[in-house]
């Protein structure tokens, strides 16, 4: 079953590739109905906003869904959902997922540079409160890794052969030199 939903997430990663975004994709699935409620892929280049990761897009979509359903609360829906994402959520997304009370995550490959579910930081299960003024403890994320990771890695490797078109010139040069 995990592979079925991860394939859907990988489809979103391929959508990202088509628009020259870092290929990461995700879906949020309703556990009971076994239905995709929201999809997302990286939109960093399209929005010129480096925080527009697949997970953040999907959360926004879920929020829209809640609003159009007239008054469903996001925090009531998210604990009944599971996130499938092709790459380990970064530290930002990991804490964001906890803020919206999502509790179950399946991901593909690890993210050595930014991963918040063990690679760089254990933001998924460290004891954390909400932001200032909301000190209630946030539920931890239950995380399972490695679902179809080979495909996720392959997509990333393919992408990084090219270059980020929005990076400043000097950075690109440095990168090129580094690779040589």
């Amino acid at each position: 079953m995990e592979e079925k939903w991860m394939s859907e997430a990988l489809k979103m990663a391929e959508v990202a590739v088509e628009s020259r975004e870092v290929p990461v994709g995700c879906v949020i699935v309703n556990n009971q109905e076994q239905k995709i409620l929201a999809r997302g892929c990286n939109e960093v280049n399209a929005t010129l906003n480096a925080t527009r990761h697949a997970e953040m897009i999907a959360i926004d979509k879920l929020m829209e869904l809640c609003r159009s359903n007239g008054g469903t609360k996001l925090e009531e829906l998210t604990p009944k959902c599971t996130l499938y994402v092709t790459v380990e959520p970064c530290i930002m997304c990991t804490y964001g997922l906890r803020l919206v009370k999502l509790t179950r995550v399946f991901f593909g490959c690890h993210n050595e540079r930014f991963g918040g579910c063990g690679s760089m930081m254990n933001a998924h299960d460290m004891e954390l409160g909400g932001p200032a003024g909301v000190p209630a403890l946030l539920p931890p994320l239950l995380v399972t890794s490695g679902i179809m990771k080979e495909i996720a890695i392959e997509l990333l490797q393919e992408f990084y052969k090219g270059e980020n078109p929005n990076a400043p010139e000097e950075k690109m040069k440095r990168k090129r030199r580094h690779e040589n």
Binding site: A50, C90, I91, M92, Y95, G129, G130, A132
Partner: peptide, 29 residues
């Protein structure tokens, strides 16, 4: 006004911010 939470702090890394100034620390996050 407040120290950025872990999500916002990492968002600032992604966004390549130069400097950050805050008043109130956030002991929870």
């Amino acid at each position: 006004t407040h120290e950025p939470c872990i999500m916002c702090s990492m968002a600032l890394v992604h966004s390549r911010i130069g400097r950050v100034f805050y008043i109130h620390p956030d002991p929870f996050a």
